[in-house]
Amino acid sequence: MKETKIYERPKSWVDGVHTHYCPGCGHGITHRLLCEVIDELGIQENTIGTAPVGCAALMYDYIDIDFCEAAHGRAPALATGIKRTRPDKIVFTYQGDGDLASIGTAEIIHVANRGEKLTTIFINNAIYGMTGGQMAPTTLIGQKSTTCPFGRDPELAGYPMRMCEMLATLETPGYIIRVSVAKPKYVIEAKKAIKKAFQNQIDRKGYSFVEVLSNCPTNWGMPPVEAFEWTESTMMPHYPLGVFKDFK
């Protein structure tokens, strides 16, 4: 028997739309993984997303589920209000590094510490994308951006923040993992992590946090292939992939 695999768009992808993301951007891959997971778990009509401020602000144009827009950094608080009033629903936040690790640090720490039964997808591309390539809390030492044009200097701006490691110091959060979408082998693992993070909610377990090492070819000033190489060669040594907590 010959097996035929048909490449299709996920059912929960809005019919006929193309994203506004730059060529080679990791958001598109991560959105697709999210849709595949939603389809495989059969939760399309039961899921409520919160859309961030940043490049993914328009994610509701691509993923066909209920959405509420969040103010910059506030998605974890918004999602708390949604989940507490509708504990029967699957609720997630999808946030970039400026959103989650800078303006929303209080919200992300406390949503994790309360152990809200929801899921966070954290896109770390070490830069502010939508505003045009400014320094993020996750920008690497020596990495140039429009607001650290000579490279990030730890004397002036401190060291890049490792959010998984920070959150893993808390007792409450259940599942904390760092994955990447830089190469197919990482994408397969990223999907497994996202699926598990949503399954945890279905199982009414506690808070799940999936950090996705992504890229930003446009603001890094690199072609897509080189950008994916850079994620692997330069980001991963500072942000090691792996499970930091798993309900233990």
Partner: peptide
Amino acid sequence: EVAAINMVMGGGST
């Protein structure tokens, strides 16, 4: 209070 009002927004949205 910043978080509280956003929780209110989430709760109100349902």
